[in-house]
């Protein structure tokens, strides 16, 4: 445990540093030192670092944390290791809500609020449809996810035609884009993240009990139905706010929890905090790649995560055909 935290902090510092120094405008170490030297004129550098890069890096970090933590919890609720908010259609439904808020010219925090309502609604639909057995059948879960995603994306595409020229903003939602980062958005995202991680950690032991299936969780004193609903609502909250401000970024909630499980086992006491932390680091790295690989052109971050995530998903799906968690 100590070792993995140490490695995490190391990763974090390195990626953070690389991230601050890289991007469209080259900043070298002298420029950086210049910020702290009153005699040099460093306003531009300051502006780039403090108003462009830092909020963006932090937003990447928060988004990664949100997606990975909610992915971890959804996997337990659905008893299925492939339950990632992007794959099962919750991200698409959050996009739907955010696009509606956009179409009606609502203020930006409403993007998150509407995204929240639509994703809660959809996650309950998915939950009820796929509930037939004790374990959620992988095929059902994926089919429902695809159906929901396609249906709602059709709406989103329709909205793009509707608004015409302004549609860049909607495209951003469908591909994942961190370019619009600002401190204000950072603050709007911190609250839902803090609330959800608090709720997740609070219920870590009961989530562990749920790993044995409903019947045993019940016998261990867990109110199964209530726990699952609370977890779904809370995960939808984080997913909604991350999608509302950064768009659909896939597979983070799949890759990170899976890797942590392989290293540390499935106990939620370790899994939830570590997934959250490493999810943040992962997305920070992905964002750095998206900004630098074709600099000064920027590729959407969703493209980067899907590029790594989709093959990984395929590998998992083939390996865990029976829909079991395994080590």
């Amino acid at each position: 445990m100590k070792k993995i935290i140490f490695v995490g902090i190391l990763f974090f510092l390195v990626i953070f540093a690389v991230s601050v120094f890289s991007g469209g405008v080259k900043i070298n170490f002298d420029d950086f030192i210049g910020i702290f030297d009153k005699n040099t004129d460093s306003d531009l550098i300051k502006l780039i670092i403090f108003d462009v890069r830092l909020p963006r890096i932090i937003m990447a970090l928060l988004t990664g944390m949100m997606l990975a933590s909610s992915g971890t919890v959804m996997q337990t609720v659905f008893q299925n290791p492939l339950a990632d908010p992007y794959i099962i259609g919750i991200s698409a439904s959050a996009t739907f809500g955010a696009v509606i808020a956009f179409l009606f010219n609502l203020p930006d925090y409403m993007y998150g609020v509407l995204a929240f309502f639509s994703s809660v609604a959809v996650s309950f639909i998915i939950f009820n449809i796929s509930k037939s057995g004790k374990k959620t059948n992988t095929a059902t879960l994926l089919i429902v996810g695809i159906a929901v995603s396609s249906f709602l994306s059709a709406f989103t595409s329709f909205a793009m035609y509707l608004v015409g020229e302004d549609s860049f903003k909607i495209i951003m939602w469908t591909m994942g884009y961190l370019g619009g980062a600002s401190w204000r958005k950072v603050i709007l995202m911190i609250f839902p993240l803090a609330v959800s991680v608090f709720v997740f950690i609070m219920n870590r032991n009961e989530l562990d009990a749920l790993l044995s299936g409903e019947e045993e969780a019940h016998s261990l004193g867990v109110s199964v139905e209530k726990l699952k609903k609370t977890m779904l609502i809370t995960s939808s909250l984080t997913v909604a706010f991350s999608v509302a401000f950064t768009g659909m970024i896939g597979f983070v909630g799949l890759i990170i929890p899976h890797i942590i499980r392989m290293i540390m086992g499935s106990s939620n006491s370790k899994l939830i905090p570590l997934s959250t932390f490493f999810g943040g680091i992962f997305l920070m790295a992905a964002d750095t790649i998206s900004r630098t690989i074709l600099a000064p052109v920027e590729i959407p971050i969703g493209v980067v995560t899907s590029f790594f995530g989709a093959p990984f998903f395929l590998y998992l799906a083939l390996k865990a055909k029976r829909g079991h968690f395994d080590k």
Binding site: G213, E215, L220, V222, G265, H324
Partner: peptide, 24 residues
């Protein structure tokens, strides 16, 4: 309660597993 067949399918240690009995 001890079920006829447990649905458990995730990797945790025996100790962590038994500790779950303390949840109530």
């Amino acid at each position: 309660f001890v079920p006829q067949k447990s649905g458990f399918s995730m990797a945790v240690s025996v100790e962590e597993f038994i500790l779950l009995g303390r949840i109530p």
